[in-house]
Amino acid sequence: MSITVDSRRCVGCRLCELACSLARCGRFNPDQAAIRIIFEDDGTLTIAITEACLACRRPLCAAFCPVGAIVSGEN
């Protein structure tokens, strides 16, 4: 499985951080997510995936992303 992110689509809702933390820990805590939204000074956003990402088979981060900025695939 793979996770592909497109920061240009991101709107900064951080639903992915919440969803990932729920999948990983069973509770909500963005600091325990393996995905992080970085708010840049120029107003843009960066989606950063950490090495803790397991590229889940049915990733909740992608399921909750409202803009298709996170896409899961076979590879």
Partner: peptide, 9 residues
């Protein structure tokens, strides 16, 4: 860009 509050789709 378009922007969201926390947890808002």
């Amino acid at each position: 860009r378009r922007h969201a509050c926390f947890a808002c789709p």
